[in-house]
Simulated scan of single mutants.
Amino acid sequence: MLAQLIVSGLVNGSVYAVVALGMTVLYRSTTIVNFCHGEFFMLGAFAILIAQQTLGWSYAASIVFALVLLAVFGSLVERLLMRPLQNAPHISLAMMTIALSYLFKGVSRFFYGREVAPLQPLVDGDPIEMGSVVLLPQDLLVVGASVIIVLGFFYFFQRTQTGKVIQAASQTPRGAALVGINVPRFQNLMWGASAALGAVAGILIAPSTLVYPDMGAHMLIQAFAAMTLGGFGSLPGAVLGALMLGVLENLIGGYVSSALVEITAYLAIIMVLVVRPQGLLGEWRQGRG
């Protein structure tokens, strides 16, 4: 039972890692904590659903549609709604993302109400038994896709010139602009990439959780808890925190009470803020320049 709980927790944690990574990428490049990232997750799942059921597209075409749509949507959110507030206090930026979260949920409820819709798995097949552990092919796809995405972004920020420029622009925007770096363009790119990452997580998890307008709220809390546990601004921290949270949820649900699973993320946030506010691999961030 222990092995099954740990492996299942790592599968859940892999999805949390993709969501947390999307939030961390945006925070690392803009210093903004995006409280509407859960809605990017939700909209990605709905984009797949609409493309399949309304437009009649194949799964592959629907995935491309969802990723492109959310990337463009994230870029438009930055250009039209966030950029006018670029010199405003952080609280104004945070309040804007919270307002957008409720707006996107409200629009989704207007069209779909509170009904849930099923989404077929990305891959079918019989369960795979490995000793006492049983996994579905969908689970292996989730883990594999998450690993590829995480490694890709690690490489991007640590090994590419563009990734290093984005980090420099986030730490000292004014200084970066003075040396000719187009800071708004890079930030717009990161909003689009972050929204696309939210869509990826929605595509991976929707077949297991169903699709409904409020699905992003739960995932936002999980990602926020993972970032807090691992350390804000730390890409390895976001991934480590997500995996730990996924395993912790399963262990608590399996050995203590399933009723506590829903509050595990909140308990993790409280404990980390009390014991180690910077998180396990946290790095202190400077204010916007």
Score class of each variant (00 low, 15 high):
residue 246 G to Q: 01
residue 233 G to C: 09
residue 264 T to A: 14
residue 237 G to E: 00
residue 244 M to F: 08
residue 245 L to Y: 08
residue 205 I to H: 01
residue 286 Q to T: 14
residue 282 G to T: 05
residue 235 L to W: 04
residue 200 V to L: 05
residue 187 Q to Y: 11
residue 177 A to T: 06
residue 246 G to V: 03
residue 196 A to W: 00
residue 276 R to C: 08
residue 247 V to H: 08
residue 236 P to G: 11
residue 251 L to K: 08
residue 195 A to V: 00
residue 224 F to K: 06
residue 279 G to Y: 02
residue 269 I to V: 14
residue 217 A to C: 07
residue 214 D to W: 01
residue 282 G to V: 03
residue 201 A to S: 02
residue 270 I to K: 08
residue 208 S to P: 02
residue 216 G to F: 02
residue 184 P to K: 06
residue 176 A to K: 02
residue 250 N to E: 10
residue 275 V to K: 13
residue 222 Q to M: 13
residue 227 M to C: 15
residue 269 I to N: 15
residue 249 E to T: 01
residue 223 A to E: 01
residue 206 A to V: 00
residue 283 E to R: 15
residue 228 T to Y: 03
residue 245 L to N: 10
residue 270 I to V: 14
residue 267 L to V: 13
residue 244 M to W: 05
residue 237 G to P: 07
residue 202 G to I: 00
residue 215 M to Q: 01
residue 262 E to T: 13
residue 235 L to K: 05
residue 220 L to Y: 06
residue 278 Q to E: 14
residue 209 T to D: 13
residue 239 V to L: 06
residue 205 I to S: 03
residue 276 R to F: 13
residue 235 L to V: 15
residue 173 P to K: 04
residue 261 V to H: 11
residue 254 G to I: 07
residue 259 A to M: 09
residue 221 I to H: 06
residue 278 Q to P: 05
residue 185 R to Y: 07
residue 200 V to W: 00
residue 247 V to P: 08
residue 194 S to L: 07
residue 266 Y to K: 09
residue 272 V to K: 08
residue 204 L to E: 03
residue 273 L to D: 07
residue 284 W to G: 15
residue 254 G to Y: 07
residue 228 T to F: 10
residue 267 L to E: 07
residue 208 S to Y: 04
residue 262 E to Q: 14
residue 174 R to I: 08
residue 211 V to A: 01
residue 238 A to G: 13
residue 263 I to H: 06
residue 273 L to Y: 07
residue 180 G to H: 03
residue 233 G to F: 05
residue 271 M to I: 10
residue 278 Q to I: 11
residue 255 Y to N: 09
residue 173 P to I: 00
residue 256 V to T: 11
residue 181 I to G: 07
residue 186 F to Y: 14
residue 175 G to A: 15
residue 199 A to M: 03
residue 178 L to H: 11
residue 223 A to S: 10
